[in-house]
């Protein structure tokens, strides 16, 4: 079974299709199929925003275009770099004029599967999420009317939008284009996938020991489960909270949600440092040490987070296992 699918191939496919055959409004648009291997759910594509090659390519261009920021120096790709597994490698993202955001930029790989967006789940769809960084003062800081004005005055975009949507730049068309591109960012291949599908040589002895701990005594899989290695819930993993960020409680107003953040996917985790919602841990070793210590005993801490008393070898094994979750086709 084919397990190696990566964003690059999909993007390249979309670019090829768009490049080879410019679409006119009267032609049937070419639909992009995002295929995934067995074990993965089909990529959710909402009926109101079908993927077409031209739309995905338009979204890719917008994603990388700094004119969507006030200073014309920051784009979506500034914090979600294609060559870095769609992260920026910083504890917290840096927006216009060097302003530091509140949280760590998560990878966009497999973002199509996310039921709710942001660390606190505050955004409900990929389309609506697009607008948040545009307006955020610490990110791109450009009012939406200015965004649309720039797009409408651009030498190419108005025509491109009409070709794709039959109408010019607008909030719905802008958000649909970028969201369509983001839905193609799928990463499904790793050594661990190969191991699971029968390649017994894909993991070393140490990595297999780590796997046993991950799904066993260390109880990592309580939250990091399923094909994305996340339960997509909001949990409190015992991090000392900061006053500025109450996590999920900011959205729900529920005191029991203070300190709860979305459980991230662990696919490609070895390449997406630093870790946690505020990027406080620079290495996987620091992450494992945090869980081994049983968290920091914070309010609302998940009851499963208890001291693990792992040996040095066991910690090394866990880290080694986490490295097997990397989609090696994406390594620059």
């Amino acid at each position: 079974m084919e397990t190696r699918r990566c964003a690059w191939l999909l993007i390249a496919l979309a670019v090829c299709i768009a490049g080879c055959d410019a679409l006119s409004a009267s032609e049937e648009p070419e639909v992009v199929q995002v295929t995934v291997p067995d074990g993965f759910d089909p990529v959710p594509i909402p009926a109101f925003n079908p993927l077409t090659a031209a739309k995905v390519e338009l979204g890719r261009q917008l994603f990388s275009d700094p004119i969507l920021s006030r200073t014309e120096a920051v784009s979506c790709a500034s914090c979600h770099e294609a060559t870095r597994f769609f992260i920026d490698g910083k504890p917290r993202s840096i927006g216009v004029e060097g302003r530091e955001g509140l949280r760590n930029a998560p990878s966009l790989l497999n973002v199509a599967y996310q039921r709710l967006l942001f660390w606190d789940g505050g955004s409900q769809t990929l389309e609506s999420q697009v607008l948040a960084p545009l307006e955020n003062e610490a990110e791109m800081d450009l009012p939406l009317d200015a965004v649309l004005e720039r797009l409408m005055n651009h030498p190419d975009y108005p025509t491109r939008f009409v070709e794709v949507f039959g109408e010019g730049p607008s909030i719905p068309t802008l958000t649909q284009a970028i969201a369509a591109f983001e839905r193609t960012l799928v990463s499904t291949g790793s050594r661990y996938d190969r191991f699971q599908t029968g390649d017994t040589q894909a993991l070393t002895t140490l990595e297999r020991e780590g796997e046993a701990l991950f799904f066993g005594r260390a109880q990592c899989s309580t939250c990091h489960s399923g094909f994305l290695l996340t339960n997509q819930q909001f949990e409190n993993n015992g991090l000392r909270p900061t006053e500025a960020d109450s996590g999920r409680a900011r959205i729900t107003l529920n005191p029991q949600d203070v300190g709860r953040f979305k459980v991230p996917s662990l696919r490609n985790v070895a390449w997406t440092a630093p870790y946690m919602h505020d990027g406080r841990f620079a290495t996987l070793e620091a992450v494992v040490a945090h869980y081994d210590a049983g968290g920091e005993g914070t309010q609302n801490q998940h009851p499963r987070i208890q001291p693990l008393h792992l040996s040095t070898q066991e910690k090394d094994a866990l880290v080694a296992f986490l490295h097997t979750l990397t989609d090696e086709a994406l390594i620059p």
């Binding site: 505050g122 955004s123 607008l131 307006e135 955020n136 939406l144 965004v147 909030i171 959205i251």
Partner: peptide
């Protein structure tokens, strides 16, 4: 209910 482009009556960071 459309997204307003000025003085927005919808949060971008919350539903």
């Amino acid at each position: 209910l459309a997204k307003q482009t000025d003085k927005n009556n919808h949060w971008s960071w919350n539903a």
